[in-house]
């Protein structure tokens, strides 16, 4: 099933939670809405689910207007951040709920409902918990039950609000893989909201990066990581070195030091140079655009992370770079740095 969101505007008082948002989600996709808190991602998810209404715009599910229907008529599976399991019902009854509240005319008989619930509990591998109450489950188990409950109504689309947000790091990792494999099994069009870039890149096949109620970029995980469309995306996804530079007629300068890199069509004026930590080429002093003294080196795994105080430019600039272990860095050593891959964005303020 496809989802189409057009020109959605949602205001809370003077604050624009969603500012003219457009989004298309293709059939069978697993899409991540990624952004910092307050970026509007949860609001967008709730609007698609019918738990909130926009001030303007359109939502179409499978081409059909959704805003005319309430949440109960949209056949949308929603997994809440804190699971919202019914605490007075057993796990079994929680999963069965959506089937039991169907209108009498279409409601399945008890045996069919039982079989269906059993099937779903098997799917999430928790059939042995059927008679427990939510308070007796671990966080990861609650999350899976919430998912089984949402799937019980055979939703046209599945929406998950910070599905791993309330879990500890280890469980989170396991559940990520599990969700991805579950998705490839049931293949229902899904959107999940997260503020964790690693989660988005690892689980989703499409990532939508949001900030301040606007969509900054839509793309595959590789796309948004390698070709960030805006300064925000570059800064938000992956760790970046950001240097204030001046672009003038195709050349780039850091303070009074010209950098030996192309402006790549960036407009003249105050700009920001974004470089990934591992995209700095290290060489002996005097061979690169930038030069600095290594202040401190830590080694872990295959990389060493060095704090480098840049010379030139205004004031003291200290950056962190990642270098492979094959070239040992020493504290106090003077090195030169040359950006291998970089992006230049106009300084916004």
């Amino acid at each position: 099933m496809t989802i189409e969101v057009k020109n959605i505007v949602k205001k809370f008082g003077a604050f624009a939670a969603l500012d003219n948002v457009d989004l298309k989600v293709g059939k069978g996709e697993l899409l991540a809405l990624l952004g910092p808190s307050g970026s509007g991602k949860t609001t967008l998810l709730r609007i698609i689910a019918g738990l909130d209404w926009p001030d303007a715009g359109e939502v179409r599910i499978d081409g059909e207007d959704a805003l005319g229907h309430g949440a109960s008529e949209r056949h949308v599976g929603f997994v809440f951040q804190h699971y919202a399991l019914f605490r007075h019902m057993t796990v079994f009854e929680n999963v069965a709920f959506g089937l039991r509240v169907q209108p009498r005319a279409v409601r399945k008989d008890e045996a069919t409902i039982r079989a269906r619930v059993k099937e779903l509990l098997d799917l999430v591998q928790l059939d042995w918990l059927a008679n427990r109450y939510p308070s007796q489950l671990s966080g990861g188990q609650r999350q899976r039950i919430a998912l089984a409950r949402a799937l019980a109504i055979e939703p046209r689309i599945l929406l998950l609000d910070e599905p791993f947000g309330a879990l500890d790091a280890k469980v989170r990792k396991e559940l990520r893989q599990w969700l991805r494999s579950l998705h490839s099994e049931i293949h229902v069009t899904s959107i999940f909201v997260t503020h964790d870039q690693e989660e988005a890149l690892e689980v989703a096949n499409q990532v939508v990066v949001m900030d301040k109620g606007r969509i900054e970029q839509i793309g595959t995980p590789g796309d948004v990581y390698d070709n960030p469309a805006t300064a925000f995306v570059h800064g938000f996804i992956g760790e970046s070195i950001v240097l204030p530079v001046e672009v003038a007629g195709g050349s780039v300068r850091l303070g009074d030091r010209p950098l030996n890199i192309a402006a790549d069509g960036a407009a003249s004026g105050a700009s920001k140079l974004f470089v990934r930590r591992h995209d700095m080429q290290i060489g002996p002093a005097g061979t690169g655009s930038l030069e600095g003294a290594v202040r401190h080196v830590r080694s872990f795994g295959p990389i060493q992370r060095a704090e480098v105080a840049l010379s030139g430019g205004e004031g003291k600039m200290v950056i962190e770079i990642d270098a492979p272990r094959d070239r040992e860095l020493q504290a106090g050593e003077i090195i030169s740095l040359q950006p291998r891959r970089y992006r230049i964005f106009a300084a916004q303020d």
Partner: peptide, 25 residues
Amino acid sequence: TQEEEAAISLGASGLQTFFRVTLPN
């Protein structure tokens, strides 16, 4: 309101939500 929202999103009507989810709580 999360449990009520969950019930609504699972297709329950207002009264079903009240009697099956809110009232027991």
